[in-house]
Design a protein around this nucleic acid. Structure first.
Length: 421
DNA sequence: TCTGGGGTCCTAGGACCC
DNA sequence: TCTGGGGTCCTAGGACCC
């Protein structure tokens, strides 16, 4: 048996945690640059605000209905996520942290009779210790646990549900709600009359393998209660690292794009160092605003493959700017740029170039420099020390107009408790 | 006027090898 | 006119997830 713990309206719940005055009020959390809706409280859902909707389209509704708007505050969400996850891991060792707000538990070694009670206790404990409400679904496979969670949250509105003796629910679940069936597969399946999760269990799995792919076949097997996906004990480092963002206003000049690309190089560098990897390939992309059909469109990417892998922010930035130079075309209004590091390798397996003199001295100097850079930024705040290439007073960077304080991670932004006097 | 960011995996096809 | 069989690796593109 598997259990899926899923935080309810996670980002909205995080925001409400430090704003008890917002209990029962509609809350919406926006994506980077206050672009789209990425989380909604139940009250906001009830107003018909849908996921992914651009903010400007719902602005009047938010105003008349007094919806509380928040910019995304990932520092806060990450911190609260870690608290929730640590409680889960303390309660049960065989756990996979699947996303910022979800964890799978493999309960197969627990007495079946204890499983539901265990989940009910866990749900109460998480709420008590963190203030974050969660729902827990149980099932014979990860996919069934997912569906079970969906039923608990959306249909029955109860904290814990075990679908094992209630598989009739599959007949009422749209096939597009099944984990692993996205928009394209849903379209293709419904064309063939496969409209519900139950329908999918009735199709020959080899036919699914042929017509779709092996993942869809596994999904169908999992719905039948045949577990194909085990917990992934994934402490493995990322295989690619990306930093990208839309601009607050469209940019035309090379210089501001170069600043943005330098900033993304810096962010990507920090992520790279954090997991102790080196990059072999630096890729840069930029694109115009695809929603502005009245403007000429351009989208391009370029990459540089390094002879020797690096984690030096100076080299990464230098190569990223060279990529940008190669793809930049004047005369366009750019909306977004990013830096993508691929072909990552572990620092311990450093491969020297056969045809160049070994340059240990140079590497040592670089390592020392980076160590100091990291140390200073760790102690005094993320962007205390950075390359001048990032520029100052960036007007192009995304705005977070409705951002809440870093309540739990910054001394100066701790919530204050007022005694009313 | 205003439309997110960051990942993974699978597959088909092409290039190459003997 | 007729031209094998059995592999591996790489890449781009497409699907999915949160």
């Amino acid at each position: 048996m598997f259990a899926l713990v899923d935080c309810n309206n996670f980002y909205a719940s995080c925001e409400r945690l430090f704003r008890p005055d917002l209990r029962g009020q509609p809350i919406v959390v926006l994506s980077s640059g206050d672009g789209c809706v990425i989380a909604r409280s139940n009250e906001a859902k009830a107003l018909g605000i849908v996921m992914g909707e651009p903010y400007f389209k719902i602005k009047p509704l938010c105003h008349t209905q007094k919806v509380h708007i928040f910019s995304s505050n990932f520092t806060l969400y990450r911190d609260l996520s870690q608290r929730v996850m640590s409680i889960i891991e303390q309660a049960w060792a065989h756990t996979e942290i699947y996303s910022i707000d979800e964890a799978f538990l493999d309960l197969s070694t627990m007495e079946p009779i204890l499983q539901e009670v265990f989940c009910q206790d866990l749900q109460k404990n998480i709420l008590k210790c963190t203030g974050i409400p969660v729902s827990i679904g149980l099932g014979r496979s990860k996919t069934l646990a997912k569906i079970s969670n969906f039923v608990a949250k959306r249909e029955l509105k109860i904290p814990v549900f075990n679908i094992d003796n209630h598989l009739d629910w599959l007949k009422r679940i749209d096939v597009g709600e099944v984990w692993g069936i996205g928009r394209q597969w849903r379209k293709k399946l419904t064309c063939q009359g496969i409209c519900t999760a139950y329908d999918l269990t009735q199709v020959d799995v080899h036919q699914l393998r042929r017509q779709f792919n092996v993942a869809v076949m596994w999904t169908a097997l999992e719905l039948k209660g045949i577990s194909c996906l085990q917990l992934s004990d994934d402490t493995a480092p990322r295989k690619t690292i990306l930093s990208s963002r839309s601009f607050s206003t469209m940019q035309t000049e090379f210089e501001s794009l170069a600043q943005a690309v330098s900033m993304h190089s810096h962010i990507a560098y920090e992520k790279l160092r954090e997991q102790g990897s080196l990059t072999h390939c630096v890729c840069v992309f930029l694109r115009t605003n695809r929603f502005r059909e009245d403007l000429p469109q351009y989208e391009q990417s370029g990459s540089i493959r390094l002879i020797m892998p690096t984690d030096d922010v100076r080299l990464i930035t230098q190569h990223a700017k060279a990529c940008l130079r190669a793809i930049y075309k004047p005369g366009y209004s750019y909306k977004k740029a990013g830096v993508w590091l691929t072909e990552l390798s572990d620092k311990s397996g450093y491969q020297f170039d056969l045809f160049q003199a070994r340059c240990e001295e140079k590497l040592k100097t670089s390592a020392n420099f980076l160590k100091v850079l990291d140390k200073i930024n760790h102690r005094f705040g993320k962007h205390t020390l950075h390359l001048a290439a990032l520029g100052f007073n960036n007007t192009w960077d995304a705005q977070f107009q409705f951002k809440s304080p870093a309540y739990t991670t910054r001394w100066t932004e701790l919530p204050s408790v007022c005694n009313g006097t």
